[in-house]
Design a protein around this nucleic acid. Sequence first.
DNA 1: ACTGTAGGCCAACACCTGTTGACATGTCGA
DNA 2: TCGACATGTCAACAGGTGTTGGCCTACAGT
Lengths: 195, 195
Amino acid sequence: MTEASSTEAAKARRSDATRAAILTAARERFAADGYERATIRAIAADANIDPSMVMRYYGNKEKLFAAAAEFDLRLPDLTGVPRDEIGARLTGHLVDRWEHDDTLMALLRAAVTNQAAAERMRRLFAAQLGPVVTALVADPAEAPVRAGLIATQALGFALTRYVLCLPPVVALDRAAVVAWLGPTIQRYLAGERAE
Amino acid sequence: MTEASSTEAAKARRSDATRAAILTAARERFAADGYERATIRAIAADANIDPSMVMRYYGNKEKLFAAAAEFDLRLPDLTGVPRDEIGARLTGHLVDRWEHDDTLMALLRAAVTNQAAAERMRRLFAAQLGPVVTALVADPAEAPVRAGLIATQALGFALTRYVLCLPPVVALDRAAVVAWLGPTIQRYLAGERAE
DNA sequence: ACTGTAGGCCAACACCTGTTGACATGTCGA
DNA sequence: TCGACATGTCAACAGGTGTTGGCCTACAGT
């Protein structure tokens, strides 16, 4: 055995490093180029292996993307936070997630032209943002709309800052982003309903 | 002469109909599929002509896109509107533009994976939204940031509703969109600065 | 009626894509 | 030591892409 444990079924394979390298390269390429322009060949070259290895380990491009786009927003528990600070906290957290992880970017860029990626994005927000909003909102029936509106502003910010790179939006520092967007998120979360 | 005027230099060529058909088909394809998945062959098939015609009339794919993505937001003059209604008016107008014209969609879908399209999007907002915001804002130095923030919310709404199709956002009717997003735009436009 | 030319089609090119199978190498248990 | 299996490389495939040039056809101006 090359690893510590002796009786465990999950032994560390020698190929795990390669698998990880492929996944990292895939995330970077998908994030930078989108689904169709990110080629298996380019990903393999980045990972310093042959394109056929990608196929052996992940089956096909679709499955490779599915593996590379696995993502957890890691939303914090906000039930204890003072009500009027929630918007700012949520905004700050989302900015941090965008800045330090390629995965969301890969998902966003791909989702615009790829149906499967779009479906994944929908599930991500429904499964991860949905519950958090439901727990914070007075009337649970309003939760989906409010979560949707938050997605509107969060994704719009990411789109203009990281993808389209509109200069004034790129220029904002973290504090400014929280100060401007925080109240918007706050209103979508807890403001009086507007329908 | 086939047309009314006799001495005019701009005579209507027989190919004008074809040119227009190509442009319409191109807009639809770019809007539905994005830049790389919208193929010249598919566009030509939609326009019922040969792919080589597209090349003859527009040179190459890049120039075809440039011609198809020509867009005017047609922002109304808002200087006479009561200050607290401006956000709602602007929001309503933008929704209408999105709903009745493929071009913005083509631009958005392409801009996510195509540098030239992204640059075009930046120019669109700088040249068309910028001046309107400058005219409405107290301190002209704040105009770019405020226009950027508006872009953030406007594009985020379009992204989630028309591209990603998040169900709760798709379900909103026009009045609900204006009621929810109007105040946000209003605050970005005229609210106290938050930096 | 004749002819030049604009409008249109066809076939092909060079290239790139995802994907596959055959083959070499190295590692580890028996 | 030997053989089984994991790891990796190479070359090729079938199909799709933007793009090009040659050829046909029908109409406009004389």
